[in-house]
Design a protein around this nucleic acid. Structure first.
Lengths: 221, 221
DNA sequence: AATATTTTTTAATCAAGCCTAAAAATTAAG
DNA sequence: CTTAATTTTTAGGCTTGATTAAAAAATATT
């Protein structure tokens, strides 16, 4: 039962949509895969025949245990490669996604586990997303909230992002916002929801609400 | 001008055949690619149209400068990945070829150059084969000879192999023969060409002529 | 319940790469 | 120079994954 690259990408997309919209329509999936509904139909049939999804027309697709396992292992590979690219090859965090997208389809489990060991079993990828363990179990990230929910005076650590697109990450680079850095909310402007943060050196950072909504933080006690 | 995985593999095969048989027939190429002459015809046309080879029926194919460059960069990737797999992920040298074969088709030049830097610009891969530099220039290996040409009493260092198949390498593992290790020729049996080597700790190793022919060595003055 | 809207499927095509088997072309040998 | 052997090409198909456009089915709305 060999899974093709295309099939792996479908499984990943289905997993993603299951997490957000509950159940996906073929159209939503087509959009996510940058493909067409007609193409999706054929692929879903194939995935069903291989026991990777359950599928009923007009009622969306759900991953089976096996399908979920494969999807999570693919995500594991992806995120481990991102760690490798950023930590070992010194790529900036905004430029590793597409490379990891290629690398995630290479090699078998033994290989990935050696990579994991080489990287010292990292738990989060460079965007703060949790890395599933060797058995394909997604680690839970503890109580992160979008930064726009923090109130004036709150101190917090940046732990993740909701949007991992290069554009967004590059914007954060410019602001000097990165994972692990801590800030205090300094001001909030009611009229547009934008906020100002004070960094460690007292430097002020201004963020629009669109940006702060996509930054995940952990409040300090 | 994007080159597909299949095309890259054809270029590699053509380069290899150019080095040995001079000019390759489609049939030789088909054999090398584990494919058929009919499949080769179509691909050679495509490669010619893209300026990667010169090709005339019944007279074989030659790489153009561009084609040679691409082939050498693919080999560079392959060998760098082999170094990574052996040195960083601790894979045995007899098991990295097929994985590297997959990895060699991933990523762009910037990526490979970062990998090269991370590995400290290695010059030889785990089988002793030279790694082309960033410009696609193959480094020359100095005066290596097959070990069966060494005479009784000669001291030498193992520097490479002609056959990188898992079976052969595993055989060398069993004999305790690896790159960098030095031996002295202890005996040679004229009737079948087999030889005995004495290792550093005085241990004796017996090699058939078929094996010693495939081991490349450098004589110690 | 009937109609309108959305969603999915079918049908016909395309493209890359590969296959087999038969035909054509070229080279080599007598 | 004619035949034999080799090599290459053509022809017809297969597979995977995609496409568009039209038809069919299900859901929603009135």
């Amino acid at each position: 039962m060999n899974i093709s690259i295309s099939q792996e990408n479908y499984l990943k997309s289905i997993l993603k949509l299951e997490a957000s919209d509950g159940v996906a329509t073929n159209q939503a999936l087509a959009q996510n895969m940058e493909s067409t509904p007609a193409a999706v139909t054929g692929m879903l049939r194939k995935l069903m025949k291989e026991g990777l999804i359950e599928y009923e027309a007009y009622h969306g697709a759900r991953l089976t245990e096996s399908g979920k396992h494969h999807a999570l292992l693919t995500i594991r590979k992806h995120r481990l490669w991102e760690v490798f690219l950023v930590e070992k090859l010194n790529f900036p965090w905004d430029s590793v996604h597409s490379l990891a997208e290629e690398l995630e389809h290479v090699g078998d489990e033994a290989f990935v586990n050696r990579l994991d060991e080489f990287l010292n079993h990292p738990v989060f990828d460079p965007h703060g997303d949790p890395i599933p363990d060797a058995k394909g179990v997604m680690r839970e990230r503890p109580n992160l909230i979008p930064s726009n929910l923090a109130e004036v005076g709150d101190v917090f650590v940046v732990c993740g992002v909701v949007d991992s697109s290069s554009e967004f990450l590059r914007h954060l680079n410019q602001l000097g916002v990165k994972l692990g850095k801590s800030f205090q909310v300094y001001k909030r402007y009611a009229f547009d929801g934008s906020s100002e943060w004070k960094g460690n050196q007292g430097r002020l950072v201004t963020l629009s609400s669109h940006v702060s909504e996509k930054i995940l933080i952990q409040l300090q006690s």
